[in-house]
Amino acid sequence: MSESFKGLIAMIATCTIWGLSSIFYKSLSHVPPLEVLAHRTIWSLVFFILILSAQRRLPAMIRAMQGRRALAIIAFATLMISANWFMFIWSVQSGHATEAALGYYVFPLLAVLLGRIVFAERLAPLQWLAVALAALGVSLLTYGLGTAPWVALSLAGSFSAYGLMKKQLDVGPVVSVSAEVLLLSPVAALVLWQSHHSGAGHFGASTRDTLMLICAGPLTAVPLILFSYAARRLTMATAGLLSYLNPTLQFFCAVLLFAEPLTGWHMITFALIWCALALYSASAFGQDRARRRAVRAVAASGTGVI
């Protein structure tokens, strides 16, 4: 089995876990989202510490937070990812899973636009068209429903801001996320202490709830580890295209399993977003092929072939 094929399997597994995770959080609808988030943080930290300890990389988590700049970046990233996690859990539990799926469809297009604004990255004409179609879709949904899709925009915005922060770190995703949940863990512990002190905590109330809350840790950590494995073996274009499996599964869970309403305005918006993603993917693949051709040309030139 080739390394690229292993990466492909890992990426599909990653997006499948992310896409179907809404079923897991929906089954915890009787647990307040803040308590679920707190358990997700604590058990993720436990899982990451075990993994990093086994790999003898635990000191890397501490080193990642050394220096004011690094600590500030990780702190802001922690704020963004915790907001994203909370919003996703709340949206699934409260019947807004369709909007959550829309948010993760919009995310790559918003990330491209933020890259242009913050890092002055150049956008190809097809990418500009993709961003415009996404903006049109969100605008039409706002007009049709009489209110902006705040859940979708919050998820896309927080995850895009999180991505911007991660781009400025020189550590791997597993180490950086471990540092993030470490920073968040005191707040999570305070939330859990308060909920159990008031008698409202669900941990220990039943075997099912206890096991599911513990499993929120591996459910967070395992796909991140798989994603890190896949990212080193796949081209960015391939990884980007496969990532759309996540919101697609979320969308089908929302409509088919949770029976959430799907209006005509939703369908028009999703159609525009899907067209935008098709254009963006075509442009990304074209750029990736051109980049690989240039690398091969340079390599051939260096060996005297041309």
Rank of each mutant, 00 (worst) to 15 (best):
T78W: 02
V187C: 14
L20P: 05
R56G: 03
E180Y: 04
L52K: 01
P33Y: 09
T238V: 15
G286C: 08
R233L: 13
G304D: 03
V92S: 03
T303I: 15
A254W: 02
I17H: 05
I12A: 10
A271Y: 11
F159C: 03
G157A: 07
I225N: 02
R69G: 06
K166I: 10
R56S: 09
F258Y: 09
K166R: 15
A278H: 00
A276W: 03
Y143L: 15
L272G: 06
G240V: 01
A284Q: 10
V305L: 15
L183Y: 09
S195K: 11
V31Y: 01
Y105F: 15
L126Y: 08
R57F: 05
P218A: 12
L45I: 01
V151K: 06
I81L: 01
S198E: 15
P173S: 06
V118C: 11
Q127V: 00
A101P: 04
A230M: 08
E121R: 09
A188G: 05
A239N: 07
L182M: 14
V46F: 13
R40V: 07
T78V: 01
E3V: 14
V36L: 13
L71T: 02
R291V: 13
L136R: 06
L140Y: 05
S206I: 10
C275H: 05
L28G: 02
L141S: 08
S283L: 08
I214H: 08
K166P: 07
A60E: 10
V171I: 12
R292E: 13
A297F: 10
L50G: 08
F252K: 03
A111E: 03
R208I: 14
N84E: 01
S158R: 02
T14A: 06
P186T: 09
F86Y: 14
M236H: 14
A130T: 04
A70H: 13
T269Y: 02
L71Q: 05
F252A: 02
G95Y: 10
T269A: 11
S281P: 05
Q55S: 12
A284G: 11
R68V: 04
L249D: 03
A120F: 12
G163C: 08
